[in-house]
Each structure stands twice: as C-alpha cells, then as structure tokens.
Design a protein around this nucleic acid. Structure first.
Lengths: 344, 344
DNA sequence: ACAAGAAAGTTAAACGTTTTTATCGTGCAT
DNA sequence: ATGCACGATAAAAACGTTTAACTTTCTTGT
C-alpha cells in the first residue's frame, strides 16, 4: 500500500489538497470544523508529512549542520571525545522540532571553513553550529555576511556580535588563580589550548591579570599552548617539572590534558599534593576517578549542548543574536585541599 | 541571482532538460560530444545538483542514520565517549559519496527500537548504523523484515546473517586469559558490559572456556555486568578486593571502566603490579597515560568506523550482507609484565 | 528501394508540498 | 433589488529532478 499523502486525505474528505495543507498547518483560512475533519482523516489513514515535498517547495532543509573538528583517522590521540555528548545534547534539544542534526566531520580549521562556505552557498542546512572559535574567526564572518543563522560553542573577540555559548573562562581562571595563590602557590603553570583559539586568549589574559593582582611575575616558561591531548599534558609536566623553579600547581584546560599531567607526575615520581597539584576543567565528570581525585571546574556538557540546540532554533526563527549569548560558570568541585606543602 | 538548475543548462545549450539530466548522470543514451557540451555549460554556470528535487522524485534520502545511544542529560557519567570518533570515522567514509550522516540520539534500547521503526517505515534514511547489539536483537529483525540496508557495530547471535563489524571478543578474551594464567594468575575478574549485549555474552563464554582450559573453577563473584562507566569499574574493584579470595587480575571491557578500576585501587590502597593488575580493551589509546600504563588490547576506533561507513555504502548498493562481516583483532600492547607477584 | 531497428533527443508526466490567485456563496448596506 | 465585501474553499502553478513514452534521424540487411 502506498504511503498516504495530502491527496489521500483530500479524496477521503472530499476537500481540495490546498485546504488539507492549510488545515494541517493551522492556517486561519480554514474553519475549525473543516480542520477537525481533516485532522481526523489524517489520523485515520496514518498520514505523515513528507519532508521532501516541503523541502523542494520551500527551499528549507530542516537540517542543522554540526561541524565537528576531529583529528584524522591516523591521529590516535584522545581528543575531542566530549563531542559525542555535545552532539547528543544538541540532538535532544531539536527533538520536538522538525530539524535534524546533520554531521560534518572535518579534519582542521581550513576544512571547516570550506565546508561552511559550501553549506552557506548551496544552502545545505538552515543553521550551523561550530566550535573551536578563534579570536577573529573567518567562518563567523562568512556566515554573518550571508546572514546565515549560526551559534558558536565558544566566544569570539573581534567579530561582530553573534549567538554563542561558552564557559566563563575569565572567571574560572580568576577564581582558580586566587584560590591557588591563597593556598601558598607562587609558581602556577597554565596548560592552555592552541593560542589562536578564542578561549585560549581569554584564559591567558585572565591568568596574567591574576598574577598581577597577586604581585607575581609572569613567566612564559610556565605557559604552554597546544592541542589538549593527554600527550600534551604529559610532556609539559615532564618539561616544566625539570625547571630550576618548577611549578607547584598545574591548571589544565580539560580532563584529557589533566590525565596526561598525571602520567607525567608518575614518570617523574612526583606525588600529587606533596610536590605539586593539578587543577582542571572537566566536562565529562571523569576527574573524580583520578588517583587522587583532583579539584576541577565541572560544567556538565549537557548544559552548553542543550543551549546550543535551543539557540540555533531561536536563531533560525529570526531572533537577534544579541539575545542568544550565554557564559556558563562551571562548578568548583574541591576534591583536594591543594595547599602548597609547607615542609617541601 | 538565482541558483542554476538543469533548466538553466538546457537554455544555455539549447538541449532539453531531459538530455541535460541524462548527460550529467552519464547515461548511455547521450552522445559523448553532447555530454561534453553539457558538462562544460554546467561548470560555466556553476551548477550544483539540488538534492531536494532528486529526493522527491526518487524517494531516496541520501541520508545514513547513525543511531547513537547515549545516556540522558542528567546522566553525568563518562560513557559512550568513543562515539565521537566513531561518528567522524563513518562521516569520512561517506565523504566521497552523496550520502550524509544524520544523527539520531536515543536514551535507551526501547527508544532506539522506536526510532528505527520510524526510519524504516517513513523512509527517513537509506541506511542505518546501530551499535550495542543484543544476542537476539529485535531491531535487526525489524530492518531485515523490511529489507532495509543496515550495518551493526557488534555481532548478534541468534539473528539471521547481517552486515557487521566488531572486535574479535572471543579471541581477545581467550588470549588474554591464557596470558594471565601463564603469568601465574588464578583469580581473574571479568568486568563485562551489560549481559544482554551480544559481546557481553561472547566475552563471558570465552572467559568460561578459558577457565576450563586452565583447569580453574568458575566463580560468579568474579564476574560483573553493567554499563561500562568508571563508576562501574571502581565499585567492582571495591567489592571484589574485599573477597576472602580476591582477584589478582581484572579484565576491563573498556578504558572507562579500567580508569574506574584504578580509582578503586587507589581507594583500597592497592598497588598495581604488586597486589593485582588491570588489563583492558582500549579504543581511544588512552590507557598508556594511566599510572602506571597498563596492558591493553588496542583497536583504533578509526578502523571499525571506516569499515562501518564502507559497508553501509556497499549494502545500500545491494551487496549481500554475508560479504560484509568483519571481526577485527585488536593489538595486544604489553605495558606491564603483569606477573602474579610471587612474594605476595 | 524499403521496412525494420537502433541511436539520440524531446515531450510530458510525476514525485508531495506550499502558496498565489480565482471562485463561489452569503450576509449586509445602500 | 443591486452591488460589495468577506469568509471559505478550489484551482493551478511552482519548486528541481527523473524517467517512461514518444519522435526523428540514421543504419542496415534484404
């Protein structure tokens, strides 16, 4: 048996397909009684809207493109794993809408740029969600120039206002630094994301300001930028711990680099809490299982991801981007006292 | 300016839209010279196929549905993180095809069943990729009954033959057990996935057989089934290590539960390599950063994921499922000698 | 020389919607 | 009574593509 269409309903009710279409869309042009008849018939025959017809007619795709930057297949490092949760959160936020998440996996920034240009010019989606924003992000400019709805996970610095969701990195670093200074730390290392990423810059600046406030000197040797893999965390601990004036605290930008930092501790024979401490930001609630559990800023990734979904929906409905900007403050979870060991 | 269509090309070349369409599809009905003219004109005007027209006309969606089971937003445990890599691998495998990955996040098995029924009956995709297969999986039956192309990540046991990709769990456990027995272990714990999952059963049976071969008794107290979170690993170590005859080796089904097992070691004051050892399966290459690094079976997730993509393409082209079945053997990476401590 | 058949194009219909425009009563003011 | 506006529905066109059916032209075998 064929799948029922509005034509089926038209025949069934004796109405025209135009009326059926309008009735199903709750158009004020059709009488409530007529609508009731249509709805009844639609349910009786098991009608479901065929999106292909809609898409062709209206030009809308009902797709939200999620651009996911993941290192290539040969790149076997633990990175970007939080993307799974991010995607499912977005997907759930769109659940009650006609929109679907369409995945675009890219290998690097350039590829994401190309993909976005394509989506915009060929209208392969109605909205775009990107992450890994840069201070001055050309992708944002592309989408803004075309007046294309989008939301970013991460702020930008030099772009015109746009919809975004991000963790409050400035506040996080500020509070984090004050807390460590208060506990006696004078040499605090910052394991930061790539320096062209917007939140890398935000964190670095907050870090410098916090040093200033505490009357401490800025030492470039204590700051590292890189892809936030365990390898990155490990290697920087290996290097920095050999400094004549080694750090007594490491602030890691995510849980992967924190895990790697632990690996560096183990390699060097450092004991957490005695020789130095590790603090981290954690999206995945995993650092509670480290040995020992560490102090982290925890932002359940479901929060930003569902916001991203909600925002792209509202953005596609025309809401101005200025109303769709949120900085989320992660919860500080203190699992260690993190004091500088006095008898060191 | 409007986006060019085949009509544009028809006007440009003086041919009919039918000929243009056929030429672009390399139909034998059109002369090579004519085709050349069409191709040239298409490139000149910057023509790109409008999929909506195709979809409406042919009924094909050019979408591959990836069903991703992830616990709900409130469920803040580190689980299913390998899905990000899995998805990007699939996405890359489809890169040169007209197909796109469409994401369907579901919360549990029942929901995945409902979603699949919907996709099949409303033809919301041309192919489906699922994971978390059960011994007798009703979703597989649904898709087979409708003759719908699909590939599973994970085998099934009682279903009719279908396309799948999986790790060779039987061999993995067999070799793993033999190796531990050879190193003196007599009490080996198995931290297994949920018992209704196909690979949970495979692993358990292989485990029992290995015990038999080694002449060891099967002790149910050493086997646990559950969602493979760190919490699961931790809790089982906490419990099992209190047994009068505690295990000296733990085989963890993934890296998350292995991390949790370490957390349990730390809590109980157990030292890895002295009191007991942990072995694991690791998709993400992360257990090298544990302290100490542990012995794992490593299967880079890019391998199964690109196979899944390739298989669904071939399956959608009508290739029989029997030709699309692969068990991948992970690499054993020995990072500890894992011998039972003699002076224990 | 001519019918038959192949080769290469064209015409037209169809896929399922939405939306603009047209039609047709009906009630109301003039 | 006549014209008019209005409310409700119908008719028809359009979105971009594929494909079955048809036409025209050219080969080819007898």
């Amino acid at each position: 048996m064929q799948r029922p269409t509005i034509k089926t309903i038209a025949q069934e009710t004796g109405l025209s397909i135009a009326t059926v279409s309008k009735a199903l869309k709750h158009s004020p042009q059709v009488r409530p009684e007529t609508r009731a008849i249509v709805i009844e018939a639609a349910e009786r025959v098991g009608y479901e809207l065929n999106m292909h017809g809609v898409q062709l007619r209206t030009g809308k795709t009902y797709q939200v493109a999620a651009i996911m930057t993941a290192p290539g297949p040969k790149q076997n490092e633990w990175e970007g794993v939080e993307y799974a949760q991010l995607l499912s959160g977005i997907s759930w936020a769109l659940e009650d809408s006609p929109y679907r998440v369409s995945l675009y996996a890219v290998r690097n920034f350039e590829e994401s740029q190309a993909v976005i240009k394509q989506i915009v010019s060929l209208k392969k989606a109605d909205g775009i969600i990107i992450s890994g924003t840069r201070a001055d992000d050309p992708r944002i400019r592309t989408m803004q120039a075309a007046d294309f709805p989008f939301v970013t996970y991460g702020t930008s610095i030099h772009n015109a206002p746009h919809a975004y969701v991000d963790a409050d990195n400035e506040q996080m670093i500020r509070v984090s630094m004050a807390r460590l200074v208060e506990r006696g730390h004078r040499r605090i290392a910052l394991l930061n994301p790539l320096s062209d990423l917007s939140y890398g810059i935000t964190r670095l600046e907050a870090y410098k300001r916090a040093l200033e406030v505490a009357g401490l000197a800025y030492d470039p040797a204590l700051v590292a930028h890189g892809r936030l893999t365990p390898a990155f965390g490990r290697e920087n601990v290996l290097t920095m711990s050999e400094l004549s004036n080694a750090p007594t605290a490491y602030i890691c930008a995510n849980e992967a680099s924190a895990l790697g930092a632990f690996s560096g501790f183990h390699e060097r024979g450092l004991v957490h809490g005695r020789d130095a401490v590790i603090n981290a930001t954690d999206d995945l609630n995993v650092s509670q299982y480290f040995a020992p559990p560490i102090t982290t800023y925890y932002l359940p990734i479901s929060e930003p991801s569902s916001l991203l979904g909600a925002y792209i929906l509202r953005r596609m409905e025309g809401e101005p981007p200025e109303a769709l900007q949120t900085l989320l403050m992660p919860n500080l979870i203190e699992r260690c006292d993190d004091r500088l060991n006095p008898n060191r």
